[in-house]
């Protein structure tokens, strides 16, 4: 939940608020959980809905300041250093470039990328969570990957 909220909101304080709120909702609505979609999907769906609410509200308020220097710091994200070490280039720069590109994606594409590649959800789980057909999920992912590919072109 924290990873999803931090990746979507790009603000650790707000992400923590969302997680806290989600935990309360999960506790309050626990009796309504029927297990049709799996606990993980249900929990993440609550968090995703809260993130969407926050992002919608953010459109009417001042936008968050840009954190070009370190896109991980403000979002409260960390990366596995061994993965970055595998890369020939400077790991920090590479990961920061990718994170900036993810942050710049449209909301629906960012959500799809985070759910599929960061959280490792299946297409079925994603269609359940997002409430859209599988084709829509795949097309969002394809568009997002095209953008990320372009952004990462210089690091190939």
């Amino acid at each position: 939940m924290t990873t999803l909220a931090a990746s979507m909101l790009r603000d650790r304080t707000e992400a923590d608020d969302v997680v806290e709120e989600a935990l309360l909702r999960i506790h309050a609505a626990g009796a309504q959980f029927r297990g049709e979609r799996g606990l993980r999907t249900w929990v993440l769906r609550i968090a995703a809905n809260l993130c969407r609410d926050r992002l919608r509200r953010r459109k009417f308020t001042a936008p968050l300041p840009e954190h070009d220097e370190d896109p991980f710091a403000a979002a409260g994200l960390t990366f596995d250093p061994t993965v970055a070490m595998d890369e020939a280039l400077d790991g920090q720069v590479l990961m920061a470039a990718l994170e900036r590109a993810i942050a710049a994606l449209p909301e629906d594409q960012r959500e799809a990328v985070v759910m599929r590649h960061r959280l490792g959800l299946s297409y079925t789980e994603m269609t359940d969570m997002l409430g859209v057909p599988e084709g829509t999920v795949k097309s969002r992912l394809a568009r997002a990957l095209t953008t990320l590919r372009t952004a990462m072109e210089e690091f190939r």
């Binding site: 924290t2 909220a5 409260g76 994200l77 960390t78 990366f79 590919r149």
Partner: peptide, 17 residues
């Protein structure tokens, strides 16, 4: 790219819990 995306996560804050 997918591997790099997967390598990033946000650790849960115990204070939130």
């Amino acid at each position: 790219i997918a591997k790099l995306i997967r390598a990033t996560h946000a650790p849960a804050d115990p204070a939130v819990l």
